[in-house]
């Protein structure tokens, strides 16, 4: 019985050790705090490619650790942030960037917000203008007067 327990304990220990490691490890951290801050900033923008929508900064996967170490090596070698990203894109493809670059195939992605704002703004403006000019011409009917009265008395209550 005790042998079973012991082998279970060994198994448990083995599994604990085999469990995925936690994101950034103490031995990865660079001595220079400014450089380390840049490394953290960059790793939040890089995708762990074997994970599901996780940055390498948050990921436990061994591949993420490899890339974290790699990018720190590049930073220590004196690369700028842009050079590090170029280097990783050359190695792993655009897929590695969590914030895609602005180019022909991501045009619509980046322009969605401004397009909706501008087109929606124009539509709203035109709608309000057109409706105002339309009313200036037509006087209110008796039913509309009553409705207006109702709405206005409603107004004072909020």
């Amino acid at each position: 019985m005790s042998r079973i327990l012991r082998s279970l304990a060994v198994l448990a220990l083995a599994l604990t050790l085999a469990a995925p490691v936690m994101a950034v490890q103490p031995d990865e951290v660079l001595d220079d705090p400014a450089l380390e801050a840049r490394a953290r900033e960059l790793s939040a923008e890089l995708r762990c490619m074997v994970c599901q929508n996780e940055s390498i900064d948050a990921s436990n996967a061994p591949l993420a650790r490899d890339i974290r170490i790699l990018l720190r090596e590049r930073l220590e070698a004196g690369d700028t942030n842009a050079e590090v990203l170029d280097y990783l894109v050359a190695r792993y493809g655009e897929f590695v960037l969590l914030k895609p670059r602005f180019n022909a195939s991501t045009l619509l992605l980046w322009l969605t917000a401004p397009l909706v704002l501008i087109l929606g703004g124009i539509a709203a403006w035109v709608g309000v203008r057109r409706r105002r000019t339309a009313t200036d011409a037509a006087p209110l009917s008796a039913a509309e007067e009553a409705e207006l009265e109702r709405v206005l008395s409603d107004d004072t209550r909020g």
Partner: peptide, 20 residues
């Protein structure tokens, strides 16, 4: 459509959603 693989993650959303 094109077979091109890109990722759209937190940094993209922070940059576009925030300013809105």
């Amino acid at each position: 459509l094109t077979g091109e693989k890109i990722s759209v993650g937190a940094p993209f959303f922070n940059l576009t959603f925030g300013p809105l």
